[in-house]
Each structure stands twice: as structure tokens, then as C-alpha cells.
């Protein structure tokens, strides 16, 4: 009889405890020796994510400007909208890299700002916007170099001397590669457009815009 009662009690206990919703689970116990990125380098990488997103919103503003009826440059608009999505992809690639290296386990909510207002929202001409784009890319390149420098030879005490070979190689081989190619492309476009507009201002931009629209 006692056994039956105790079984019933145990069963009842199991039933009530499993009626609770278990939403939270304990953190797993994983060795951390493999996580070897140093603080100053991680900090720079995190900041670079925000930089790429800000560039993306700036390009979005360019796309919006050239889409307007008074401006009517669909080729330029398409070019800049694509650039905006590319910059966003760069930010996502940086996030993926940090996740791969065992980072971003905490303080994720502060990683990016939830609203970004683009500093410039109108341009006098297509060539004017392309020049701004080239300046923006040069700034991003400089920032990536800054990340590389910090991760190759961290100056602060926390990461003294820890050379992050893989990240440095990744940023140099993938990110800088794309930056330099993109900058050359922009410079070439500015060159062609400006030469065309020298004598045929409106027609030059009109034709260049239609060419952009076909090419992309």
C-alpha cells in the first residue's frame, strides 16, 4: 500500500513539474582555450560592422535621390541600391567571421545602432555622387586597414603582441581585395563620365545613366 501511495506521489510530482514551461536552459560547459581573439582586435572588428552599415545607408540615400522624378537617373539608382546591399553583406560577413571565432556570445544587442540617418541626402549630379562614393570607399578602406593594424599588433595592454594571422589574412585577401577593385571601378566611371560631360553635360549624364542601367 505504501509503495502504491509513494508511486502516486512521485507520478503526481512528475506531472506537475513537467507542466511548467522550461524556456531557459543552463549554459553549456565548453572549453574556451580555442577562443583566442584579443579584446582590442574584437573591439575594432565590432566597430567595423557599424561602419559598413553606415556606408550601406549612405548608398541607400544615393539610390533614393537618383530615383526621384526630378532627377530620373534609374541607372545610377540601381548602381547605388546594389552598392547599399553589398555594404550590408560586408557587415554580415564580418559578423559571421566573429561567430566562427567564438565571439559575440555577449553584448550582441549593442553591436549595431538601430537607426542610422545618412549625412548627405542630395547631390548636384551623377558625377558628384560617384565622387562621394569613391571618398566613402576610401574611408572604409582606411578603416579596414585600421582593423588589420590593431589585429596584427595590438597596442593596448590587453592584447599585447598577439598577431591574429588568420583574421589579418582574411581582411587583406577578401575585404581589401574587394575595396581596391571597387575603388578602381568607381574611379574609371568618374573618369569616363566627367570627360563626356565636359562638352555634353546633360546628354553625357543621360547616356551614361542608360548604359549603367543596361550593364547592371
Amino acid at each position: 500500500m505504501k509503495v502504491i501511495i509513494s508511486v502516486i506521489v512521485i507520478l503526481a510530482f512528475v506531472a506537475t513539474s513537467s507542466a511548467n514551461l522550461q524556456c531557459e536552459h543552463a549554459k553549456p560547459n565548453i572549453p574556451t582555450e580555442w577562443i583566442d581573439m584579443v579584446k582590442p582586435c574584437v573591439k575594432k572588428m565590432r566597430a567595423q560592422i557599424q561602419t559598413e552599415l553606415e556606408a550601406s545607408i549612405q548608398y541607400l540615400a544615393m539610390g533614393a535621390h537618383f530615383s526621384r522624378d526630378k532627377i530620373n537617373r534609374p541607372g545610377f539608382a540601381k548602381f547605388f541600391f546594389q552598392a547599399a546591399s553589398e555594404e550590408r553583406q560586408h557587415a554580415l560577413k564580418l559578423i559571421s567571421y566573429l561567430l566562427m571565432r567564438g565571439e559575440l556570445t555577449s553584448n550582441v544587442s549593442k553591436l549595431i545602432k538601430k537607426t542610422i540617418v545618412p549625412p548627405i541626402v542630395s547631390w548636384t549630379s551623377g558625377v558628384d555622387a560617384l565622387k562621394d562614393a569613391l571618398r566613402l570607399e576610401a574611408k572604409v578602406t582606411k578603416d579596414i586597414r585600421g582593423v588589420i593594424e590593431e589585429c596584427e599588433d595590438p597596442k593596448e595592454e590587453e592584447g599585447n603582441g598577439y598577431n591574429d594571422y588568420h583574421l589579418v589574412d582574411h581582411l587583406t585577401g577578401e575585404f581589401l581585395e574587394e575595396q581596391y577593385k571597387g575603388q578602381r571601378e568607381l574611379a574609371g566611371k568618374i573618369s569616363n563620365l566627367e570627360k563626356m560631360m565636359d562638352e555634353h553635360k546633360a546628354l553625357g549624364e543621360f547616356m551614361f545613366d542608360k548604359k549603367l542601367l543596361d550593364e547592371l
Binding site: 549554459k27 553549456p28 565548453i30 559578423i95 559571421s96 561567430l99 567564438g102 565571439e103 559575440l104 556570445t105 550582441v108 544587442s109 553591436l111 549595431i112
Partner: peptide, 10 residues
Amino acid sequence: LMATHYGNYE
């Protein structure tokens, strides 16, 4: 950000 959180190894 929500996706990033679920992408970390923990």
C-alpha cells in the same frame, strides 16, 4: 541582432 545571437557557439 537576433540572428547573430543564435549564431554564436553557445
